[in-house]
């Protein structure tokens, strides 16, 4: 819609992702602005699979801020395989009336402005958002991310724990910190789940002083 009416330059500027400065890495985590994000997709391949929904919630000052949480359904370009639809509980009918990715993406990218991403298995979120940015604006998605799955893997390794299958799943990782069970596979719930897990991990990684962003990203 309005996106297609914009010139290429404006589009590039709009989608230019925020960059992480070196000094930022030494900031205590509770002084950094984060955005926890989760995308639900039709599959695992960003080149062929489609985003169905995006959920995100900011984390700042060491707290999850629900006020600026966001959730968007996305109309997929093709019909969704049945098994996926069941998994996400997203009815095709709801998706058919949702806006296309091109309309949703600017809002999502705007939410990332000045923020560091948080996701559980961030590679997947980064890959899908990058693919989306490239397709729609021709830009890269260059947002620094903290991956809660990687953090958990390191934390377990540091304690000499063997990591079994399923131990790194969001729900398993959360249960290790006494975090409540949320219904999985809802983009906003999962984003919230990752945000809370991040706070728990950061609290654990902190000594007398809060852990720095660099420590949590390394």
């Amino acid at each position: 819609m309005w996106l297609h009416e914009l010139g290429a330059e404006v589009r590039r500027r709009l989608f230019r992702p925020p960059r992480l400065q070196a000094a930022y890495r030494n900031s205590p985590y509770d002084e950094v602005e984060f955005l926890a994000v989760d995308v639900e997709t039709t599959g695992l391949d960003p080149t062929s699979d489609a985003i169905l929904s995006v959920g995100y919630v900011p984390v700042s000052g060491g707290a999850v801020r629900l006020a600026d949480a966001g959730y968007h359904l996305v109309r997929p370009p093709r019909a969704i395989p049945e098994d996926t639809a069941v998994l996400h509980g997203l009815l095709e009918e709801n998706l058919r009336t949702a806006p296309p990715l091109a309309e949703v993406l600017p809002t999502v990218i705007e939410a990332f402005r000045g923020r560091v991403g948080i996701a559980h298995h961030a590679t997947l979120e980064i890959a899908f958002l990058t693919a989306a940015c490239r397709t729609i604006s021709g830009n890269d998605f260059r947002v620094p991310f903290v991956c809660t799955l990687a953090l958990e893997k390191r934390a377990l390794a540091r304690r000499g724990k063997a990591v079994g299958a399923g131990d790194l799943r969001l729900a398993s990782a959360r249960s290790r910190y006494g975090l409540p069970r949320y219904r999985a596979h809802d983009a906003l719930n999962d984003a919230l789940g990752a945000a809370e897990l991040f706070l728990a991990q950061a609290a654990q990684a902190s000594g007398r002083k809060p852990a720095t962003l660099g420590q949590l990203m390394a």
Partner: peptide, 11 residues
């Protein structure tokens, strides 16, 4: 109300 909530983790 939920839109006003902040969530904190306390060790």
């Amino acid at each position: 109300l939920v839109r006003k909530i902040e969530i904190r983790y306390v060790r």
